[in-house]
């Protein structure tokens, strides 16, 4: 039986993480390679990196980060942010990432999903979705809309329809971020997550809203998520990954406990 995955997410700007680990003195705060190694040893099941570097000529730094991470950790990790072309995907995968995630680029040009899946396999292609609750309309029957450009631009696209379409195009996984829940630490979106997860056959990673272990329990059970993305609650030392896994395991959620 598959274990539910716990996935820390690191935002990286110009080669440095924007949130460091606060509770561990001997970690070079801000070094994504060190942080990845730390979470790997703590039992993270996978790691997600988002490159939020503003200027495109700084993107080569991220390739170096990916190379550094690949030398240090032996679990899957994915890289998203600023990936626009098949060539961008190729460089990240060649540097050692297991998966790439596309969000805005896939909405603007859905063939990047099918071309990426054909070139590298579906297992490499993660669809990132930024979703906001809206009024149900004919155009957005699910009541959830896709936003792009880091959540700054609405698209008028229905989130459920887009998830199904992306699966057909060859996406291997969905990372589903609720913009309403994101940053609140009040819990994951427990209506949106099962709506998407139960209507596609590919795994869904829930993102946005984790404030405590109970929230993670809810999204991995009621929320039907296959994995939970976490950021602040581990970066700021509220919990360790080991603690999270031990508690979820004790509450009956299947976790990978030996590593």
């Amino acid at each position: 039986m598959l274990s539910k995955r716990i996935i820390p997410c690191l935002d990286v700007r110009d080669g440095k993480t924007t949130k460091g680990i606060k509770f561990k003195e001997n970690i070079d705060i801000g070094d994504p390679v060190q942080m990845a190694r730390f979470y790997y040893e703590e039992g993270a099941d996978e790691i997600v990196f988002y490159d939020i570097t503003a200027s495109s000529d700084q993107r080569d730094i991220m390739i170096d980060v990916v190379r550094g991470v690949a030398e240090e950790i032996f679990i899957p990790f994915s890289v998203g942010g600023g990936i626009r072309t098949i060539e961008d995907m190729h460089r990240i995968l060649l540097a050692g990432a297991e998966k790439v995630s596309v969000n805005t680029a896939a909405v603007l040009n859905p063939t990047i999903i099918s071309n990426g899946a054909n070139a590298f396999g579906s297992q490499c292609i993660v669809l990132g979705m930024d979703v906001k609750k809206v009024k149900t309309t004919n155009k957005i029957p699910s009541g959830y809309e896709i936003w792009i450009h880091g959540g700054r631009t609405s698209t008028g696209i229905d989130a459920l329809a887009w998830a199904k379409e992306a699966e057909k195009l060859g996406a291997g996984e969905i990372c589903l971020n609720s913009m309403d829940a994101d940053g609140t630490q009040q819990g994951y979106e427990l209506e949106l997550t099962p709506l998407i997860s139960e209507n596609v056959s590919i795994p869904v990673i829930a993102s946005g809203g984790a404030g405590n272990i109970n929230h993670m329990y809810d999204v991995l059970t009621k929320g039907k998520a296959d994995a939970a993305l976490i950021a602040s609650i581990v970066h700021y030392g509220t919990y360790t990954i080991k603690q999270i896994k031990e508690e979820l395991h004790a509450r009956g959620v299947k976790m990978r406990m030996a590593w």
Partner: peptide
Amino acid sequence: KVPHMGWNQVKLKRLHPVFKDVAPES
């Protein structure tokens, strides 16, 4: 879900040198 994606266990039917020192719950 299919693909079967993520972490899962292996139940060994017989011992094999390549699985030496691998805990059964791995």
